[in-house]
Amino acid sequence: MILIMTLVYGLFLLLDFIPIYRGKNRKITWLYLSLFILSYSMTVLIGFGVNLPSPAPLIKSIITSLGIF
């Protein structure tokens, strides 16, 4: 999984990011990279079997605590 994901991310970097990088808009470049690295690191962590905290139970507990559910 990590292999395939890395490949896909790499290709995105190659095909999608390079033109943006060349566009010399630093804000976009940083925004792009930060989102990109965030998602990649999540993927890698999942690939290594780390249990990431999902937002779904959190939202559920918030709603339950509000007492509607």
Binding site: Y9, F12, D16, F17, I20, G23, I28, L31, Y32, L35, F36, L38, S39, Y40, M42, T43, I46, N51, L52, S54, P55, A56
Partner: peptide, 20 residues
């Protein structure tokens, strides 16, 4: 448009573990 790709990848990452 430039933000589409990272957003999409982030979507996938989250979709992977949002529900057990």
């Amino acid at each position: 448009r430039v933000l589409l790709a990272p957003v999409a990848l982030l979507n996938v990452s989250l979709a992977l573990f949002i529900y057990p």
